[in-house]
Design a protein around this nucleic acid. Sequence first.
DNA 1: GCCGTTTTCGGCCCGACTGTTTTCAGTCG
Length: 577
Amino acid sequence: MKNLEIAKIFNEMADFIEMKEISFKSRAYRRVSRFLNSLEQDIEDVYYKGGVKELKKFPGIGEAIAGNIEEFIRTNKIKAYQRLKKECPVDLGELKKIEGLGARKIKILYEKLKIKNLKNLEKAAKAGKIGELDGFGEKSEKNILQSIEIAKSDKGRFLLGRILPIVRKIINEFKELPEVNKISIAGSVRRMKETVGDVDILIVSSKSEKIMDYFVQMKGVIKVWAKGKTKSSVRFRTGFDCDLRVVKKDSFGAALQYFTGSKEHNIMTRRIAIKNKLKLNEYGVYNKDKQIAGKNEKEVYKSIGLQYIEPELRTNTGEIEASLRQAQGELNQLPKLIKYNDIKGETHCHSDWSDGSATIENLAKIAKEIGYEYLVITDHASPLGIIHGLNEERILKQIEEIDRVNQKVSGITILKGVEVDIKADGSLFIEDKVLSQLDFVLGAIHSGFKMDKKTATERLIKAMKNPHIDAIAHPSGRVIQKREGYQLDFPEILKVAKKTKTALEINAHEKRLDLRDIHIRQAVEVGVKMTIGTDVHNVNYFKMMELGIAQARRGWAERKDILNSSSLDNFLKYFKK
DNA sequence: GCCGTTTTCGGCCCGACTGTTTTCAGTCG
């Protein structure tokens, strides 16, 4: 898969072009770079299928860029890129991490001081050479040095699950202020993206200066990047940046729409506004100079001819077109997304019988408190010693224990399940005879992550064809920022899943979120059902359900697509083979 | 460089903040 490699090169080409001129040419490259980053198909496959002509069917890809892609696929390099890089051989990735350094300034630094990377930059700044340059000054030099220190400890993007509680704490702190009339999370946190680069917060207040003063001195702030009347930006010690914007109440909806993004989504909505002879900015929708919408998001969308679009969908991957069609009267173009309180039971839960830490009884009580109708105990059945996997004998014993707990704890039903290892050849670690006594069987791959695509696909397909398998846990095996997971022929997996009525799990664990959003969307399209499970290992895991639901929503899933949003009866009925 | 129910040429989302500058370019989101 060369998508990401090409995307990276195009992004750098955009920077190099920007060094020479503020041009739309660089934007064209940047746009395709982003497009490739989110493209689910393998661009190489597309090329081999239909050549340059096929490539040019994608938005933003024309003659020149298609040629570049072709060149890379065939020769593994792009001459135009190499020429640009030769002119200014700098480590863009490193230098662009420094706040305030963009393409133009990086070029000046290279030309005047031969600065190529962070090391050169630090040396020059410490020697006081940067402040002497035209366009730079004492302050720039100081900021660069501070920024280098911060970049050294940079942790990259944060898991949504880690950042959410922190953001909610910040929000609650602001809510205490009398000057705050209204407050909302915005940006990628509001869109519930699985990883988050920085945090955006929007406040309605008529006393913006006071809010800003409070913001930049909040506990944990280690650097103020910018502080203005309506907009400020800081870095927290935890390692993330936080942007705060304050607007008047008449602009709240427009500001929220603008500040939530995504960038691509915003560009599209603004273009649509222009087509309608309107202007959309963060203060409202304007007809000439008259504000015609802005108080809330719904009216903002409506005023430019769109149906309201949920934040999780705002990625410019078809939601705007769907919204447009729906606004024009076609039904059900946008999904009626599953809601955050639609889940009726947990379907992936480990107890102290394997590698979980809580007893079945305790887990049952917690699940009941949450309001679940049912809880499936799915301890590992695996040869791996470290997780104390169950064998046939212990599964039968556990069935008795669950019967006992069901007697004792009322108001919730504990279902008998297992997470059984799928062996390298696709067969299961537990005999069918024992599996047949369980309510719900999850199949999972826990070893051999380096399989090739064909092997991995065949392995899963064989498991899905076992009549006792009800669902596949964390189907791709990826761990965010750690492990890619095995490659799968996903369309093929979906075909078999549909035929065998095997559900695919959306594992809600903050580090997994597997299925990915694009796969969920494909599953929804072909009608393959899913479950959302948090992979409980202790009682704190239950709350990650929110992340799994967010993932499902970003994959356009409705309630009907998610099996454990059904009542106990319907859930069980689905799996009656 | 890309693209077209206003166009095959002339547009391309829009505005805040900073620093270095005396009116604005660069950066950021």
